[in-house]
Amino acid sequence: MDTTARLGVDFGRVIHGGLLAPGDDDTAFLSGSFEEALASPATDGVYEVLPGLVEAFAGRAWIISKCGDRVRKRTLAWLDHHDFYTRTGLRRENVRFCRKRPEKALHCAEIGITHMIDDRLDVHRAIREIVPYRYLFGPEKGPEWVRHVPDWASAEVIRRDIPAGRTRPATHR
C-alpha cells in the first residue's frame, strides 16, 4: 500500500473567491461575464501559503472541484490567466472535476489523497472514510472530525500533519 502523502484542494471559495459569508456565491465568477470571471481575485493568502504546501507534498497536490462544463472552462482559463501553475508549483495535469460534491470521494480514492482542503462539510462527510486529514476552509466550524482552517495563513498547520517519511517522491505517479 502506498502511504505517500497527497494534498487535495478545492477551487471555489478556497483557491478562488474564498472567505465569503456562508451560503454566498462568487457572482463575478459564476454569473458574470467571462472577462469578469478571469479578472476576479484569488483568495487572500493562497499564493503565500499554497506553494509551500505543494513543495511540502513534493508536488503531489491536486485541485478537485465540483462544477459543470461552463464553470470548468472558466476555472481552467482562470488558472492560466493568473499563472497559477507557475506561482504555486501545482501541475497542470493535476486538476480534476466532477459534477456532484460527493463524487470528490472517487477522485480522492483514485489519487490516494491523504489531506483535503474544502469549504463544504458535505464533501468532508463523503471523504471521511477515505481521507485521513480533512480541513474545513472558511468561516464555518465543523464537527470534531474535521479540522477548521479559517484562512490560508491558518493552513500552514497542514505541514505538521504530513507523516514523517511520507513526502518521498512517488515512483509510479
Results as ranks from 00 to 15, higher is better:
His81Glu: 04
His81Pro: 03
His81Thr: 04
His82Trp: 05
Asp83Thr: 11
Phe84Gln: 03
Phe84Met: 03
Tyr85Lys: 02
Thr86His: 13
Thr86Leu: 12
Thr86Arg: 14
Thr86Ser: 15
Arg87Phe: 12
Thr88His: 04
Leu90Asp: 06
Leu90Asn: 07
Arg91Lys: 15
Arg91Thr: 02
Arg92Leu: 07
Arg92Ile: 07
Phe97Lys: 13
Phe97Asp: 15
Phe97Gly: 15
Cys98Thr: 15
Cys98Ser: 14
Arg99Ser: 14
Arg99Thr: 15
Arg99Met: 12
Lys100Gln: 14
Lys100Thr: 11
Lys100Val: 09
Arg101Leu: 07
Arg101Asp: 13
Arg101Thr: 09
Pro102Ala: 09
Pro102Val: 09
Glu103Lys: 08
Glu103Thr: 01
Glu103Gly: 06
Lys104Ser: 01
Ala105His: 03
Leu106Arg: 14
His107Met: 04
Ile111Trp: 08
Ile111Tyr: 10
Ile111Met: 04
Gly112Val: 07
Ile113Ala: 06
Ile113Leu: 09
Thr114Leu: 02
His115Trp: 02
Met116Thr: 01
Met116Cys: 01
Met116Ile: 06
Met116Ala: 05
Ile117Ser: 05
Ile117His: 05
Ile117Tyr: 02
Ile117Leu: 14
Asp118Gly: 04
Asp118Ile: 03
Arg120Gly: 05
Arg120Glu: 11
Arg120Met: 05
Arg120Gln: 12
Asp122Thr: 04
Val123Asn: 00
Val123Gln: 01
Val123Gly: 03
His124Trp: 00
Arg125Asp: 13
Arg125Gln: 13
Arg125Tyr: 11
Ile127Tyr: 07
Ile127Thr: 12
Ile127Phe: 07
Ile127Asn: 08
Arg128Gly: 15
Arg128Cys: 13
Glu129Trp: 04
Glu129Val: 05
Ile130Asp: 13
Ile130Asn: 10
Ile130Gly: 11
Val131Asn: 02
Val131Leu: 04
Val131Gly: 05
Pro132Ile: 07
Tyr133Phe: 08
Arg134Ala: 02
Arg134Gln: 08
Arg134Glu: 00
Arg134Gly: 01
Tyr135Ser: 00
Tyr135Val: 00
Phe137Pro: 04
